[in-house]
Structure formats: structure tokens, C-alpha cells
Amino acid sequence: MLNSFAVLNRWLGKRMFFVTLIALLTGFNFNLPHFLLSQNVTLFCFIYLTFVTSLDIHFKDLLRIIKRPILPIGMLILIHAVMPIIAGGIGFLFYPQDFYTRLGFLISSVIPIGLTSIVWTGIAGGDVVLALVVVMLDTLLSPLILPAFFSVVLGQSIDVNYSQMILELIMMVALPSLAGMALNDLSKGKVDKFSQSLGGLTAKIGVFFIILVNAALISPKIVWGISILILLGVILLLMLCGYLVGYLASFALRNRTRPTVLTMIFNVGMRNINFGFVLAMTYFPVAVAIPVTLASVFNQPLASIFTWFALRNAPKEQNLIQSTQVEKEISTKY
């Protein structure tokens, strides 16, 4: 049974673009029941996704990254220094007279990394441990980074509930990650059979649900027209720049490996759009929130496209291992 789930999991992993596309179209065009839109339901999905992803990680892997913090810090510089400069340049190029839209671009570029970047990193074959460390470090430093950003851009700070954000990080990333790593170490690596079969399959279903809910939430806020289509094009350009910056910066690494490159691409490219939307809607005019909200149209689909490209261009040896390793281990065990 696990063998069948493993095959289906890999099959679905190579077709995540269609998963995200179907989820977006469903969310945009159908009214979902109220209970499905509950924050608690999506919170559970995030917790489960992080837990399953962590089942392949050992504590020694986590220590490996912590002992060498230069790379995570460098990625944070790319996210919170390089990307805002690019966002500001794109804003002045396309919307020189629209301060609110430019501010929306800036907020989209400076908000914390999206939690699903961990999942996409795992699906694409990146360094999940590095992704976990960068996401946790980024969120923990946000109470320092965001006030400094708003002080520079607006000349004043805003009172954001950072304690709530950190609490959500602990619930969605830290605790399930530690639980998954602990279970992996206690089982001596045997639980990875679950994460590569039924666990991985259900995690991808969780990604589908998260995208569907986000699409359903933003759909009423979009009034389609020429101006929105142009804005979507500019947002797409900005988000592609994030992936490109992550990729180009990887050439500066002394030991440039495929998993590290993939991790940099997803971590620098993806953002926590849900947090950005709440931030913009709470403290700024609606015009500021529109670019942030529309970024969610591309956040997950772009990740699925880059994942498809990464899997399609994976080394033949890696594809061979992924195609046979799980079946052999499961058939031997069961």
C-alpha cells in the first residue's frame, strides 16, 4: 500500500503546476463553505505540512546550518535589502505618480518569507533544513526589520502585533519541525517511508487546499479590467526578480550545490502574502493592499513552475534514485 502511495506522491509532485492551477481556478470561481475559510483549518494545514516535511530531517542536520550562519544571514540581506531596492525601482518605473501602489510593492518585497517555501523546497529537492532555519530566523527578526523599514520609507514606525506573528511561527514551524525531527531520530529514519508516500501525498493535498482558500479570499477584492491586468504584469515581473536574485546570488557561494541553489531560489522568491495582506489592510489605505493581495495570484503558481523545471532538469542519477529508492525500502520492510 505504501508503495502505491509513494508512486502516486512522486507522480503528483511532478505535476504540482496543475495542482496549483486547479486550486486557483476553483477558489476564484466557487463559493466555499464558511468553515473551510476558517483560519484554524489553514493553520492546521501549515502545521501538518511542516511536520511531514521535517520527517526527513535529523537534529544533526539542523546543527549543521546553525553552526554556519553566514548563508542564512546572506539570504536575509537579499530579501530585506536587495529586493526592496528592486521593488522601489520597478515601482518608480511603472507607477511614478502612484505612491500607494509603490508602497504596496515595497511591502510585498520586505514581508517575511512564505512558510510554504519550505514545502516547495522539499518537493524540488532543495535543502529543507536550510529553508527551515532561514524562515524561522526571518520571522524572529521581523520585529526589528519591519519597524526599521517603515521608519526609512514613511519616516515613522507602525504598531504591529509582532508577538502574535512569532507565536504563529512557533505553532506552524518550530514545534512541528522539532516534533518531526525528534520522531525521525527516535525511529532511526524509518518514518521517512511515510513522508515519501502517504505523508507526502497528503501534504500536497494540503498545499492544494491552502491555495484554494487564498484564492477564494482574494477573489471578491479583484475587479477585473485593463488596469488590474497591467498591475498583475508588473507584480509578476517583481516576483520573478525575487527568484532570479536568489539564483544569481548562488553563484557567489564557495560550495555551490544544487540543493542550496534551489533553497535560495524559493526562499528569496516567496513571501508570506497572508501576513502582508493583513499588514496592509490594517495600517494602510486599500490602494496599498491591492498589490500585496494580487501577489498571491502568482506566489504558489510560480513556485510550482520552478519546481517542475527543477524536477525536469534534475540529474539523471537523482531521478533514478527518486524513482526506485522508496519502492525498494518499502518492499524490503513490508
Rank of each mutant, 00 (worst) to 15 (best):
S4P: 11
S4W: 14
W11A: 13
F17K: 08
V19P: 02
L21N: 03
A23V: 05
A23Q: 07
L24R: 06
T26G: 15
T26K: 11
F30T: 11
N31M: 11
H34W: 09
F35L: 13
L43I: 07
L43N: 14
C45Q: 09
Y48N: 02
L49T: 11
T50I: 07
T50N: 14
V52P: 00
T53A: 15
T53L: 10
I57D: 00
H58R: 10
H58V: 00
K60D: 14
D61W: 06
L62S: 01
L63I: 08
I66M: 09
G74H: 04
L78A: 10
I85F: 06
I86P: 04
G88I: 03
G89Q: 12
P96W: 02
L103V: 03
L106T: 01
I107R: 08
I107M: 08
S109G: 04
I113S: 08
S117F: 02
V119S: 15
V119G: 06
T121V: 06
L144K: 01
L144P: 05
P147S: 06
P147T: 08
A148F: 08
A148D: 05
F149L: 09
Q156L: 11
I158M: 08
D159Q: 11
D159C: 12
N161E: 12
Q164V: 10
M165F: 10
I166S: 08
L167G: 07
E168S: 15
I170H: 03
V173I: 10
S177G: 15
S177F: 14
S177N: 13
A179W: 01
N184C: 06
K190T: 10
Q196L: 14
L198V: 07
G199C: 07
G200L: 04
L201A: 05
L201D: 01
A203L: 05
K204P: 10
F208A: 01
F208G: 00
F209Q: 00
F209C: 00
I211G: 05
I211R: 05
V213A: 11
A216T: 00
S219C: 05
S219D: 03
I222E: 11
I222V: 06
I226Y: 14
S227L: 04
S227I: 00
L229I: 11
I230H: 12
L237Y: 12
C241R: 05
C241L: 13
Y243C: 02
L248F: 13
A252W: 15
N255G: 04
R256K: 09
R258Q: 04
T260I: 15
I265Y: 01
N267I: 15
V268N: 03
I273C: 12
F275P: 03
F275S: 09
V278I: 14
M281S: 14
M281C: 12
Y283G: 07
F284A: 05
V286G: 09
V288H: 10
P291I: 07
V292L: 01
S296K: 08
N299K: 04
P301T: 09
L302Y: 02
A303F: 00
A303W: 01
W308R: 09
A310W: 08
R312Q: 11
R312V: 04
K316R: 13
I321M: 12
V326K: 06
K328E: 15
E329N: 12
S331D: 14
